[in-house]
């Protein structure tokens, strides 16, 4: 259905249209759920395609370092300036390092690293698997007695779940360093005091909870890329659609699950 047709249908039969989208949404959640379960089973079945896993860890993890690092340093720096300004309104500029550290480790480190991965990796996975679908490579793989969930999906899920926490740890460090740079170069904080305050203040849970979030986000990013690529249809346009859907759905699910996890963690402590 084209967008114009869809719009016409909504205009003439609003209730039907609503019902149809509700049904479609339920079907989609079901389909993604089944796909996720198959992916998890494949990822946990110990007949791994190790060379594929290695390749994906490099592609997903290593090559995302520059973009994650750059995002983190600028965000850390901007965050420091904003919190300094905000803190100034209560004469509380001095707690800036602590707030920056908390904001980065619990929230911005994992979320920003995940969003960068959604843009870079989810799209790349969807495009690659989508192109394989369009050119019958996935069908070919099955006729060669090889399960695409084990060969294609599992290594990507595992690689993302393993590497996003590491990328987040890097983002945490670089983000805090960005704050430190602004604080010491622009705002005349004492470099060693800044570092000491940060270290004394942070609890291990601040960091660990962020890393747990990152693992969940990594799963989401790879799952959305794989799901939309695997189900791509309609040639080159279908592949284009798959990449867009992968990025948009990863981003939305990252934010939604971020809120849910934060709520959960708040109740736990």
């Amino acid at each position: 259905m084209t967008a114009a047709e869809a719009a016409r249908r909504v205009a003439t039969h609003p209730v039907q249209a609503l019902g149809r989208s509700a049904l479609a949404a339920v079907r989609l959640v079901g389909a993604v759920g089944v796909f996720a379960v198959r992916g998890i089973i494949a990822a946990l079945t110990p007949v791994w395609f190790v060379s594929q896993l290695r390749r994906q860890i490099v592609a997903i993890g290593f090559f995302s370092l520059p973009v994650v690092g750059l995002t983190a340093v600028f965000t850390g720096a901007a965050l420091a300036l904003n919190i300094f300004t905000g803190g100034g309104r209560f004469n509380a500029e001095q707690v800036m390092p602590q707030i920056v550290a908390l904001g980065i480790t619990r929230e911005l480190g994992p979320v920003l690293a995940a969003l960068m991965l959604a843009g870079r990796v989810s799209a790349a996975i969807a495009a690659e698997i989508g192109a394989m679908r369009a050119t019958e490579q996935i069908d070919a793989m099955r006729t060669l007695s090889t399960d695409p969930f084990r060969y294609l999906v599992a290594p990507r899920l595992l690689a993302a779940v393993l590497t996003l926490p590491l990328l987040t740890a890097v983002a945490d460090i670089i983000g805090i360093a960005g704050g430190w740079l602004v604080a010491t170069r622009v705002l005349e904080f004492n470099p060693t005091v800044y570092v000491r305050n940060t270290i004394n203040f942070l609890e291990s849970w601040d960091i660990v909870s962020g890393l747990i979030k990152a693992a969940v986000f990594g799963f989401i990013v790879a799952l959305m890329g794989c799901y939309h690529g695997y189900n791509a249809s309609g040639g080159a346009r279908g592949v284009g659609r798959a990449t867009t859907h992968a990025v948009v759905s990863s981003a939305i699910l990252i934010f939604a699950s971020d809120y849910l996890l934060t709520t959960l963690f708040t109740h736990m402590s």
Binding site: E136, Q137, D139, A140, M141, R142, L144, D147
Partner: peptide, 18 residues
């Protein structure tokens, strides 16, 4: 199905090479 495929060979329309 995977076992069955070990008895089958397919040449796809666009060759479908990886």
């Amino acid at each position: 199905r995977r076992k069955l495929f070990s008895r089958v060979g397919v040449l796809f329309q666009g060759a479908a090479l990886f």
